[in-house]
Amino acid sequence: MEYVNSALSGLFGVLVYPFRGIDPLWSLAFFSLLIGVLMLVIFRYTSNQPAIAEAKRKIRAYVYELSLFKDEVGMVLSAQRSILRENMKYMKYAVKPMLFMIIPLGLILVQLDSWYGHRALEPGERAVVSVTLAPGGDVMSDVTLETEPGIEIETPALRVPEQERIDWRIRAVEPGEHTLTFNAEGESFTRKVVVGDGGITQISPAAYTGGVWNILMNPGNRPIPGNPLVEEISVGYPGAEVSALGFRVHWLVIVFVLSIVFGFALKGLFGVEI
């Protein structure tokens, strides 16, 4: 899974690169276009296009029937029943392409979340750094944290035995990627903290020692090298929002809307019956 993440992160890094200095709305539009096209292509080749076309034609016909025979209750009820039936068929035909879309779309969305879901700390901004220890360990008092000059540790360790967790509050001082080094029982683990200047940066708040799902969902971090002491190291990066039409919205809303817009706009070009 680590290799999949690395490959996808590399690819998205290349795709994002030309957009780094400009409004993230443009790169999100670009990815929405790609997603729209991808969905069209998958839909085109995995769905029963003639059957979908027929279902849509029939729905249109029955809707027309509704308007023509609106005074005849029996006809209306029959047409409504037929519309419902054809709709169910239409949805059935859409299931297969949807299943084909889930995996690639899921990977893309996880990637996009790592680029647009959180933002880097700004100089002067504070965040909580947490280490979750493996259950049963007894090293809580021994874990220490060191940083590079670009990051300042503002509090002593806060140990919460019932959560097997140790927290520190850090403050970003200078832009750049800074290393946090955690020491416990003679071993060291590191985590990068990104202090940015407003550009698009890949950020995943948590890093794990294992678990496919954990690793998959945090593509911006390499897994912590296998160790019995630590389970997770996380940095409380702030969530990011994108400005659109004067509103601040989550990136997913923009991608959802624009990919549908692009999908419908280009379906004719690709000859896809949706």
């Binding site: 400005s243 004067g246 692009f262």
Partner: peptide, 14 residues
């Protein structure tokens, strides 16, 4: 084109 204009407007709206 409409989507692009929408995008431009959204960007300017920022």
């Amino acid at each position: 084109l409409a989507a692009a204009v929408l995008m431009l407007a959204a960007t300017l709206g920022c």
